[in-house]
């Protein structure tokens, strides 16, 4: 690659925790190779380029933009549209951009309820003036602007067209490197693809599997699983059966059930629905009351268990306004 002009790389952080930013650094010294291959033209967490610098760039002048985070505010939407316009290849980087992730779980409530909780109800909050963030506020010095906080969190591809997806919360360093290599070597799958494996975590999991028959589900703190048998067969709600491989089955290998951060497998639209359909089939009872009890006692938070990462991208997308308690 010596002698060729350097590519242009941008990275951006929208509605997410920031873990994806750190994950980029988890490729360790290979970050130097990235620097050798690309000019990093925009990366607010690490590089001193401003939004107006991006605005001035020619459309399509950025070769690759790794965009992490979902779209919760008007500012994030603006940045998504801007970076889409300026980039040749837009990658939804990590679970939040890919399928909404934890911020997307807030789609089970509303902006109103979120504001109530955050600005009024938490025990440590004292807000006697009932102040809440407003898109514009008049002060003697002029008008202040804040981004609009949307009622629903959207994934990146529900906002702009996305070329590739890199799943994971966060994506594993090796998978990030695989993606960078694929980009550099121009060895990418067809646009719209997830860059990663096309099978599920079980493929990478060394635990011994039998036919699945579950009589009782346990929370992780309730049992110490044996080290050899499939966790799901031991009653731990392991989502590995329905979750795309690529992580190396790190969690189940250390006795912690897969929580599904790599999202659904290739060709599957609704991760939670898949997981539920499979799980329903493994419950070892034909008695409706017993089945009810097994589910009620063992899975107290179905949305959090099955849609922890994928609610915003699922067929459900959000809870109906009318069903949200106010």
């Amino acid at each position: 690659m010596n002698g060729e002009p350097k590519g242009k790389l941008a990275l951006y952080w929208a509605a997410s925790c920031g873990g994806c930013e750190i994950a980029v650094l988890a490729i360790n010294e290979r970050i130097l190779d990235v620097d050798a291959l690309f000019d990093i033209v925009f990366w607010p967490v690490a590089v001193d380029a401003k939004v107006h610098d991006v605005e001035k760039m020619a459309d399509g002048s950025i070769d690759v933009c790794l965009f992490n985070g979902g779209i919760r505010t008007s500012e994030q939407e603006y940045m998504a549209r801007l970076l889409r316009k300026k980039s040749k290849v837009l990658v939804a980087f990590g679970s939040c951009a890919h399928e909404g992730c934890i911020p997307g779980l807030a789609n089970s409530t509303s902006r109103r309820r979120i504001f109530e909780t955050v600005y009024h109800e938490t025990p440590s909050t004292e807000n006697t003036d009932h102040v809440e963030p407003q898109p514009s506020t008049a002060v003697p010095e002029g008008t202040l602007h804040l981004p609009v906080f949307y009622d629903t969190l959207r994934t990146l591809d529900q906002t702009v067209k996305v070329d590739y997806y890199l799943p994971g919360c966060p994506p594993e360093a090796d998978r990030i490197w695989d993606a960078i290599t694929a980009i550099v070597e121009n060895n990418l799958p067809p646009p719209g693809s997830v860059i990663g494996a096309e099978t599920t975590v079980c493929q990478e999991c060394p635990r011994k599997r039998n036919e699945k028959k579950v009589k009782k589900f346990y929370r992780t703190w309730e049992i110490i699983p044996d080290e050899e048998t499939c966790l799901l067969e031991q009653g731990l709600l392991c989502c590995g059966i329905a979750t795309r491989a690529g992580c190396g089955a790190r969690c189940p290998q250390v006795g912690s059930p897969c929580i599904g951060c790599y999202g659904p497998n290739e060709g599957i639209h609704d991760h939670g629905a898949r997981m539920m359909a499979a799980l329903a089939s493994t419950i070892d009872s034909n008695d409706p009351e017993e089945i009810d009890r097994i589910i009620r006692d063992g899975i107290p938070d179905p949305v959090g268990s099955f849609y922890r990462f994928g609610l915003a991208a699922s067929h459900l997308r959000r809870k109906k306004e009318a069903m949200i308690e106010t």
Partner: peptide, 13 residues
């Protein structure tokens, strides 16, 4: 076959 991870969910169903 490429997609199947051998999780055995289907076997006894």
């Amino acid at each position: 076959e490429d997609i199947c991870s051998g999780c055995k969910t289907c076997i006894n169903l």
